[in-house]
Amino acid sequence: MTALSSPYAHNNQSVRKVMLQVQLAALPALLAHIYLFGYGIVIQWLLAVATAIVVEYTLLKLRGRPVLPFMTDMSALITVTGLVFCIPPEAPWWVVVSGSAFALIFGKHLYGGLGYNPFNPAMLGYAFLLISFPVPMTQWTMPGEVVGYTLDFMHSAQVIFMGHFDGNSLDMITGATPLNELRTGLSQGVMVPDTLRAHDSQLPWGLNSWAWINIAFILGGLYMILNGTISWQYPVGFLGALSAMAFIFEQIDPATYPPLSFVLLSGGTMLAAFFIITDPVTASTTPRGKLIYAAGIGVLVYVIRSWGAFPDGIAFAILLMNIAVPLIDQYTQPRVFGHRR
């Protein structure tokens, strides 16, 4: 008989439970998304999950790993969920399929599977899509408040699989995201306040659909912080740094730099703050390291958004900071009890 070491007690937490909690926390945002943008995201999500199942099964088999425990650890589910929120709801089906497959194969399995990947798989997949298919990735379905209606399930399916619905072109319902508009406006000499004023929203408090989805993410995020699924350092560091950047530059030149509220509630800010950068595998793990890592992403996001080539810099900011994680961990080791610093 082999000696089994103590402890013989456990708090009954498991990887699967952690992942399911994250999935649960994403539910408010999913519902908001459906309400505001229609059922496209549901189809995308189903497609992504189907892809994930196939890819996971094949790769686990190929790698000679036990299939069942690793299929049911739900980590792939979190990866594709993160990715789906970044993809335009009515993007063609092959976008999400190739993105999910790339994320799982190149982002996870080729590095040795769960726990061994240095880069956030969802963001790797997203970056891959952004670079490979820039056009479908920037054609966002307009929310109901802008177009006047949202597509129902069947129509969404038609668009996603065939590229049109009832003979209508996709262009009718797609447009630029606020971040994109801002960028285009600036390049045409339109000041930021003017661009923003041109798109006043009828939704409560004058917040547009993208902002409401961000708020839904905050709700889910707060839930995760309270039950201990994610550390508070990530959102605090990220949002803190991003706010600081936004505040400073807005004070310098309000005509060129968007206001704080817009920066925080546009694009994937809150998705990143609570769901993406909190992926523990690719994030720093020391308490101070988490803050530094998150703050670094915050700064990079603002830099890329303001001066980079892409409208939203979340993916690249995260991937860049992923590289820095070992270094951060190395230099932020906490003081061990009884040791001097």
Binding site: T2, A3, S5, R65, P66, F70, G113
Partner: peptide, 10 residues
């Protein structure tokens, strides 16, 4: 000596 824990299959 405490034996090393049996490594997981993966």
């Amino acid at each position: 000596q405490w034996p090393e824990p049996q490594t997981v299959q993966e």
